[in-house]
């Protein structure tokens, strides 16, 4: 069952990853590959748009934990946007809001990167 899809698009200097469907231990390697590609291209400013993500397990959350330091070490970050409440609740249960920035809208997350660049 391939009920997961990950695609990346560029918005200025920021890369936006769109997630769709179910992110679990079976599909998490696809997201890892996407992050590996970004690192290969020296793209470290990442917004993950969760608008169409219906489900996430700890295997999916683990991907962000495994890659975020690499992004931050290279003056980038992984920021989250457009998350549905039930998906956010899982991040919240594990204490992610202390360590990551969550935005209602993708534009706000991109703007945060651009503000930092200007300052």
């Amino acid at each position: 069952m391939a009920d997961f899809n990950v695609t990346t698009r560029g918005v200025g200097p920021v890369r936006v990853i769109d997630l769709k469907g179910y992110l679990d231990a079976h599909t998490a390697p696809e997201l890892e590959q996407e992050f590996n590609k970004l690192i290969d291209h020296n793209d470290y400013k990442v917004v993950v748009n969760f608008d169409e993500l219906k489900y996430i397990s700890s295997a999916g959350l683990g991907v962000f934990m495994a890659y975020v330091e690499t992004m931050r070490e290279n003056k980038g970050d992984i920021k989250f946007s457009n998350m549905q409440d039930d998906v956010f609740n899982i991040f919240d249960l594990l204490g992610f809001p202390v360590l990551y920035e969550f935005f209602k809208d993708e534009k706000e997350a991109i703007e945060k990167f651009n503000q930092k660049e200007k300052s």
Binding site: S57, S58, A59, L61, G62, V63, F64, M65, A66, Y67, V68, E69, T70, I90, L93, L94, G95, F96, V98, L99
Partner: peptide, 24 residues
């Protein structure tokens, strides 16, 4: 219980499942 900050520094993403199960 997983220490998110430490796991992140070590570029690790595992060890969250059991903690989540207990919460749920």
């Amino acid at each position: 219980e997983p220490d998110l900050k430490r796991l992140q520094k070590e570029h690790k993403g595992g060890g969250l499942g059991m903690f989540l199960m207990k919460k749920l």
